[in-house]
């Protein structure tokens, strides 16, 4: 069983988000980068599935050389080998095209992504990859099992869930629930240093869209405190002032 896991390198969840160049680019100064938390879940499940189905896990990242510590971390968690497409990830379409180009003749049985990257939150790469590779995709799954030649996945829907059985190969975007986060052990960290990390050059991709400006949300006014002895006042305010109930 050959599994490909797409990993992105994102600002740590606690990062204070600021912009520069007249609010046109993200200010990377002092920012700590990590493996996207959802990709970590995807990777953990991939490693489990590879163990029980005697398979391999390749991780792929579209990024510049600065992402290599994150790629090494993925190798430490248990990926077999890694690929870096040597380009700044312009947007989801660009990323999906690069990954599809790499994957198209490699016969992966399963391609996993995170449900979304926590920086751009597009939730686009999984479904774009499915379309580019002409295979089924499920954008957000909460459970993933392999039964014979099928993937059995649980997909979130509004107010519930849907269980699907789909013949492999498929692409799936994973969310919490698919696996527990794996913390790399010492042996993993040591062996990661010597696992193969191949660098490939990008293909050219037409640009369809571009971020032209960032803003930060207007700060909320200061909180209006209601005396704990009279909580019913809160209900009055929500009704008469905020008009939300």
């Amino acid at each position: 069983m050959k599994i490909l896991v797409c990993i992105s390198n994102v600002p740590d969840t606690t990062t204070k988000i600021t912009f520069n160049n007249d609010n046109t680019s993200f200010n990377e100064g002092g920012v700590q980068y990590v493996l996207n938390p959802y990709d970590e879940i995807a990777l953990s499940r991939a490693v489990e599935l590879a163990e029980s189905n005697s398979g391999t896990v390749t991780v792929i990242n579209v990024g510049e050389a600065s992402t290599e510590p994150t790629i090494r971390k993925a190798l430490a968690v248990g990926a077999t080998d890694a690929v870096r497409v040597n380009a700044a990830p312009r947007d989801a379409y660009f990323v999906a095209q690069q990954i599809a180009n790499y994957a198209k003749d490699k016969a992966f049985d399963l391609i996993l992504t995170g449900r979304e990257s926590i920086d751009y939150n597009g939730a686009q790469v999984a479904a774009m990859l499915g379309e580019l590779l002409h295979i089924p995709s499920v954008s957000i799954i909460k459970k993933l099992n392999i039964e014979g030649g099928n993937a059995v996945v649980e997909r979130e829907i509004e107010g519930g869930k849907e269980v699907l059985s789909i013949p492999l190969p498929i692409v799936a975007g994973t969310a919490e629930g698919v696996a527990e986060w794996k913390i790399p052990n010492m042996r993993g960290i040591m062996s990661a240093r010597t696992k193969p990390l191949n660098v490939v050059e990008p293909i050219s991709v037409e640009q369809l869209a571009q971020i032209v400006k960032f803003d930060t949300p207007a700060p909320r006014g200061s909180v209006k405190l209601i005396d704990a002895a009279e909580p019913e006042k809160l209900i009055d305010l929500l009704h008469a002032e905020a008009k939300v109930i």
Partner: peptide
């Protein structure tokens, strides 16, 4: 941008060579 919408928009975008603006 529902759970199903998230799965559809990117595929439609690729088919139509369209920019996909989610959320």
């Amino acid at each position: 941008n529902s759970f199903s919408g998230k799965g559809l928009a990117p595929r439609i975008g690729v088919k139509l060579e369209a920019a996909v603006i989610s959320g």
